[in-house]
């Protein structure tokens, strides 16, 4: 059959569209964070603050690592290196797992005060979405690693998912870790 592979398979198009909507849900939370800050007296209020700066930095590092490994897996798939792809998938799963734990701790750190003020609630929400995205990244990478799958489309889905994670994490980090502190 006179047909060749496309740069972006249909599954990637689906992910792109789904990713737009997921990012838009998260974007609505980010909008909420800033909208509420404009009406509030102090944001964050006295005695409350963003989650640990160290965890924030570590998470940012893991995002870069995971996204890098996913991109590597994608390239290795094209090269047909099964062992390399599997290692990259396993690495991405580990990075995602560690980041999921860190962001879950971020959520947990905000919960005790969340009923008193909107700030910790919104911060927990923003991190909750990212934590769920990390969790999903683990599941995707794990399934690919276990099933020993090296199709280009599948690796593209994983790489795309990590791109989405970056899109979710960057505004979260900027709003919570940077903007909250310069207030």
């Amino acid at each position: 059959m006179p047909v060749g592979p496309t740069r972006l398979a249909a599954s990637s198009w689906g992910l792109l569209m789904g990713g737009v909507s997921i990012a838009a849900v998260h974007g609505s939370f980010v909008f909420g964070f800033f909208f509420l800050s404009t009406g509030a007296g102090a944001w964050p209020p006295e005695g409350m603050g963003p989650p640990s700066a160290l965890r924030g930095l570590a998470t940012t590092g893991l995002v870069v690592l995971g996204a890098g490994l996913a991109a590597l897996a994608w390239r290795l798939t094209a090269a047909g290196s099964l062992a390399g792809v599997r290692s990259a998938h396993v690495g991405a799963a580990l990075a995602g797992g560690a980041a999921a734990v860190l962001t879950s701790l971020d959520v947990a750190s905000q919960i005790p005060e969340a009923v008193e003020h909107a700030y910790p609630g919104t911060v927990a929400l923003l991190h909750g979405v990212v934590a769920a995205a990390f969790g999903a990244a683990v599941v995707i990478a794990a399934v690919l690693a276990v099933t020993r799958r090296v199709r280009r489309e599948d690796s593209a889905v994983l790489a795309g998912w990590w791109l989405l994670i970056a899109v979710l994490w960057l505004p979260t980090y900027a709003a919570v870790q940077i903007w909250s502190r310069v207030q």
Partner: peptide, 26 residues
Amino acid sequence: PAIIAASLMLEIERKFGVPFYDPTGE
């Protein structure tokens, strides 16, 4: 997505008391 986000926030407020829309909690 905007209404999904809005609804989730309201449901969390209703179930757990997080004051996203309640002025007494900013």
